[in-house]
Design a protein around this nucleic acid. Structure first.
Lengths: 224, 224
DNA sequence: ACAATAGTGTCTCTTAGACAATATCGA
DNA sequence: TCGATATTGTCTAAGAGACACTATTGT
């Protein structure tokens, strides 16, 4: 049996400048050395308990980030996707607030708008598209987008995040009802006064119990 | 780098005797030779274009079935799941009407209620649970269950399928409105007269265009 | 005619969305 | 006080579910 190249890739997404952006790194090794690509690497059976552990390791080693939300996206495989031969990549996506993304070690960690990535090697463009679709879809009926916000945030900020992801405005009253129904947020004493020449908004944070757990709704946040 | 055992497994589900049942086969080879397990096998890089092709091949060779609906479920991997070593299984689930399941070749194709499977090797119990959860969840907002029906079926039959999967009754009027909104069915001339000492029901079939494409709804078929 | 289930009309109640009133800040 | 945005109250409209009526078959 010819060998199968077994890897993991991580689609690390964040929200910046009004849109989803993805972390790409310059590849250190052939093939495509020096080309921007998703953070990825071989699975190390001796080191990784499973593929998810491999993804966590790759993400940590290459970007310095430990994401609270990391979920398996899908596995991409086949003969044509890697010039070295038949390959298989178990892909995971992660969501982080863009503030946590900095440069780690020797690798240059850079963000690129998901709609503007060009010239990616392998099938990384398709993988990113799948991740974006998953995130947008899941945002329509879950609390997933809270992971794109920082530790604390206001409801108008969170609503803006949802609206960016869904690509359409959401009714303010309905949005607040939905978030209230999720029952995953708790107010932080002390309002947000910063930039505004206006009434400050209440700051919220995730209830501790929900730090890694999504809340779902049957009906959708924006039935449009 | 130690080797990674790369396989595919198929969770072939059908509805029978009022519940979901899964196809299990007696394993031909070690480990666990003779034990009931999911149909699965090694990926053959020389033969399979990708993992999905491998799953189709495994399903066809071991059960004789070519399922119109085959979707990647997830990839299960790790050190402990296979006594031979670090293994990785890309899992696919398929839905078929139970009429198409017969014995193929030398292998005994048998159905087992998903809630009553015991003593499965590897992590197959967990894989089946994940597939069942996916199917039930997807049934709540999509037309997925039509693949559990035969070529033609009546709306009351389809509703019964949904009710079995969701585990709760559905309002008849709402159900018909939802199915109508999907716009994926067309009536077949000629009613279903068979057993009934009552008004026969109209037979429907999937519109050809939707033979492999699901229809989704925002609101859920049963908001319960 | 009767029993049984299919199919349809309609009313009600829930809830999403529109609208608008009030609250609270900086300038 | 004015401008701006946050937060809350309330009305309206769309849609889901309840109910019941009509339709069509076998016995």
């Amino acid at each position: 049996m010819p060998d199968i190249i077994s890897t993991v890739d991580v689609i690390l997404l964040t929200l910046k400048d009004g849109g989803l952006q993805v972390v790409l790194l310059e590849r250190e090794h052939e093939p495509y050395a020096g080309v921007l690509a998703l953070p990825g690497g071989y699975i190390h059976p001796g080191e990784d308990a499973d593929a998810e552990a491999a993804a966590e390791r790759v993400l940590r080693d290459k970007t310095g980030i430990v994401s609270p939300y990391l979920e398996q996206l899908a596995t991409f495989s086949g003969r044509g996707r890697d010039p070295r031969g038949w390959s298989l990549s178990v892909c995971y996506y992660a969501l982080v607030p863009h503030g946590v993304i900095g440069n780690a070690g020797r690798t240059q960690v850079s963000l690129y708008p998901v709609d503007a990535v060009r010239g990616l090697p392998f099938d990384h463009a398709r993988i990113i598209a799948a991740a974006v679709e998953r995130v947008k879809n899941k945002s329509s009926y879950s609390s997933l987008p809270v992971y794109l916000c920082g530790e604390t945030f206001t409801l108008p900020q969170l609503q803006a995040v949802y609206e960016t992801l869904l690509g359409e405005p959401i009714n303010k009253v309905s949005f607040r009802r939905k978030i209230e129904a999720f029952d995953i947020l708790e107010p932080v004493r002390g309002a947000l006064a910063t930039g505004g020449a206006h009434r400050p908004a209440q700051l919220y944070r995730l209830k501790p119990r929900y730090h890694k757990q999504l809340s779902l709704t049957d009906r959708g946040l924006n039935a449009g």
